[in-house]
Nucleic acid binder design. Structure first.
Lengths: 309, 309
DNA sequence: ACGATCCATAAGGTGGCTTTATGCTCTTCC
DNA sequence: GGAAGAGCATAAAGCCACCTTATGGATCGT
């Protein structure tokens, strides 16, 4: 393939041809008239034929220039259109990756208000338990839990990953009155394979470790654990923020006020640093941070609904 | 109009998208893989969205990239086509400006051999008495007379502007025998307003100035003067090289061997310096110089046909 | 005649682009 | 399972292409 002349020269020619005036072209391109003159001459040298006739106080396209100009203009229009359309459609769909529980229990119920505020942004939501790499997969933003120290991404803290014991009201009735943390020890503790329960009991002032009950289904997500609790299968340790609707609706009750934070982990909204200026990302960020703030205020004003009291 | 991203970045993206491989793209563009990587990232920053997904050992277009690539490729093809076609049609027609006499009497009769040698080059010939400015008018080459010291143009000397006295055979018969230059003095000297005749007579050893005959038609071109001479209206001072066919055919005869050069003027083939590499110009230059050389050899071998002898 | 307009050109500086060099990841091969 | 290879990212450094500034020339309008 024959090599194209320098593109900057072609661009200068295109603007100059359109205006029939080097000075105007220079203005449009944000450079000086001398630069346009230089570039046009460069192009003329490259193609080996004059593209403009230098007439007194004006330039007019030569025959060669007349042949070239429309095609070049068309090519640039094509580029312009392509990038404009990219910008457009690009801003019209927001791709979100979130951990399963957060997705189902927190995000989805609230997304309606985002859609109301930004009717022209479609949201593509993908629940995934793995940490997505923005360079490998196409996501605009993600909700991750962790310490917020990921390189290359901007991270906004949403709320801490804290855990508290919950169960269904029916289960509570069957279990009988529970006044202290110790009372939970004999009950079926869901998914007690990890040390969360131990940390929760420690926080509640119970030094004795809960017994690990025989074979227990190990559940990957809080989603599953919460479902099991709601089905009355036992006591679960979940993040209250993620089950606030269930708590509010009475499908789950918080058994004791004790809340333990899961190490120092928090939930974060993250997105690539270099995309901070993206309109849709800004919109989503502003919306989700406002939602989180609203939640926090609601929680602080309302007393926690405890099962015992 | 929204400004386009840097064109070099777009070009790098186009090549990378086509190859699906930065390294290959770099080869095609004659740069390093690092440069392509840099440019692609630059473009991604500009459009605000990744265009490639960096997968192990390869890159694949993102959704945005997939949308962008075809349009960009099309635009570049358009440019390529435009410049290719320009090159093509540009080399297919040669525009020549020549002084009237040279054009009619020398160039046109010989152009046939040029056409034979270069059947794919069309010649557009324009006779003009003014000196064309290549920057103002569209000519590829020109034949000028002068000293060859024009700035910005390459000039090849063709032959000197020399003048000798000619007349038609019929006129010679009527005028009676002419043995010396002085014998011409009483005869009608065509277009004797300028000093050429004086210089010719001086060269011929005649110090006496020719009388200026009353009102005389002032003719702009040797063409006209020659025609007048052929019509038997008098004695003309013309460049023999430009009337060689008339001389050979006997329509004109050279009266005396005396030839005077018109100052130091020569006929030149000229064209813009920056267009030396143009194929059609090279073709024409080579052809015309060969023709001139052929003429010179022919003249040197053949004795001049003089009227007196 | 004078100013205004527009382009060409020379000189000079700088920042964008490239190269070089290195590291990383994943694959392949032995 | 280790070593080599392929491919991209990134940092550092250098250079040249491009732009700007400044000036001149040509023409037009008043």
């Amino acid at each position: 393939m024959l090599r194209l002349p320098p593109l900057s020269a072609i661009r200068a020619f295109e603007a100059a041809a359109r205006h029939g005036n080097f000075t105007k072209a220079a203005e449009e391109l944000g450079m000086t008239q001398a630069a346009v003159s230089y570039q046009v001459k460069l192009l003329e040298d490259r193609v080996g034929t004059p593209l403009f006739l230098r007439q007194p106080r004006r330039v007019v396209l030569s025959e060669a220039g007349k042949r070239l100009a429309p095609a070049v203009a068309e090519a640039f229009q094509r580029l312009n259109a392509a990038f404009a359309s990219l910008r457009e459609t690009d801003e019209s769909v927001l791709s979100v990756s979130a951990v399963n529980t957060f997705c189902t229990n927190w995000l989805v119920p609230r997304l309606g208000t985002f859609q109301m505020a930004h009717p022209n942004i479609a949201v593509r939501l993908e629940a995934s338990h793995r940490v997505v790499d923005f360079a490998m997969e196409e996501f605009d933003v993600a909700i991750r839990s962790g310490k917020g120290d990921w390189p290359g991404v901007k991270a906004h803290q949403l709320f801490p990953v804290e855990l508290t014991a919950v169960a269904s009201p029916e289960f509570m009735k069957r279990a009988g009155p529970i006044k202290r943390a110790e009372d939970l020890l004999p009950l079926p503790l869901l998914d007690c394979t990890d040390e969360c329960w131990q940390r929760w009991f420690a926080q509640a002032g119970v030094s004795k470790l809960p017994r690990l009950k025989g074979p227990i289904v190990q559940m990957q997500t809080q989603q599953m654990i919460g479902s099991a609790a709601m089905a009355g299968q036992g006591v679960a340790l979940v993040t209250p923020a993620l089950f606030d609707t269930d708590l509010a609706a009475g499908r789950l009750v918080q058994i004791l006020p004790t809340v333990v934070s899961h190490y120092d982990m928090k939930y974060w909204l993250v997105y690539p640093e270099e995309r901070q200026k993206s309109a849709k990302i800004k919109a989503f960020r502003d919306w989700i941070l406002a939602e989180v703030a609203r939640d926090r205020i609601a929680k602080e004003t309302a007393a926690p609904r405890l099962a015992i009291m």
